[in-house]
Design a binder for these strands. Structure first.
Lengths: 162, 162
DNA sequence: TATAATAGTTAGCTATGACTAACATTTTAA
DNA sequence: TTAAAATGTTAGTCATAGCTAACTATTATA
């Protein structure tokens, strides 16, 4: 099944994602808001909105507020979901700072395959929602990040099991 | 410290990386080889090589073979290293198939920050080179990937420890 | 309510990086 | 050794997506 979303450029995905985030704030979404969020000039926004309107992903009339069509909302949320998954991996597993995590997620969200993203999601489920066991393992990982070597105490515990 | 590499586009990085891989095969690198590897037409290669020559990253005379300058070699290997690290994470941790892993690594290698890549490298060190302990954890992860639920036997082992 | 400030648009420019068509060179083989 | 095949280049086109400058519309306020 082929949909509009398959043809979207990274740039267009960025615009949709920005509109999701701005919409979530509850106020009408303006060209200026998007311009600020994406750090591009206003004419770039106008031009992007024109394309997205033509693709039936957003509604935008001259000098008016910006809103989604159903399809646009769906795609926007999809992109944002990818962003959050990647950011979660970067911050909660790799302990990357918020700044880098957001920047990187923002760029990787456009290029990671569905396949890899599904695996990553499962990975996070496994590691972060584990009833028990993974907590211990995560501690070991954190120690390794902090000190550059393994925590011998944790290791002994592991080895005794075998 | 600012170097040429900081200004390279994704496209130029791709060309350098391709030249690394082709050079590793031991035969002279031709425009056609690069064209095939990157799946672009030959005029695109010629034009890219012109830019890379001007930036002093490759040596290429009309109708001649392609080779690196020292700087070009350094950057090319750096990009390729990023690729391998990402691919390793995708295949060995997430169990993504080779095809998707390579495609994704190829695209993510240009956008991941130094910071995140360093963390990812450490993460792989921790998980894959662990003298003991992580092997058990990886088994649990694999089980979860395969069956969509946790292996109770492994869980019990973990919980006993606490 | 007139006017200044803010917001948004249009037109036109730039760079990147692909492409095709046509041409030039090099290599292979008859 | 010369003609065909393979390889490589040049010139020119296209799409994306940013930008500035100049203009128009909206809004806020004096």
């Amino acid at each position: 099944m082929q949909s509009v979303s398959d043809k979207l450029t990274e740039s267009m995905e960025d615009y949709l994602e920005a509109i999701v985030v701005l919409t979530n704030k509850g106020k009408p979404v303006k060209v200026t808001d998007i311009s600020n969020m994406l750090d591009v000039k206003k004419p770039s926004v106008t031009s992007a909105l024109k394309k997205l309107s033509e693709a039936n992903l957003v509604k935008h009339e001259k000098y008016g507020d910006v809103s989604f069509t159903e399809e646009g909302k769906r795609i926007g949320h999809e992109v944002y979901k990818r962003h959050r998954t990647l950011r979660r991996f970067l911050t909660e597993i790799l302990k990357v700072d918020q700044g880098h995590a957001d920047t990187d997620a923002c760029r990787m969200e456009h290029v990671i395959s569905k396949t890899s993203l599904e695996k990553l999601t499962k990975f996070l489920d496994f590691v972060l929602n584990c009833p028990r066991g993974n907590a211990e393992w995560l501690k070991g990982l954190d120690y390794y990040f902090k000190h550059g070597k393994r925590n011998k105490k944790l290791l002994k515990k592991c080895s005794r099991k075998e």
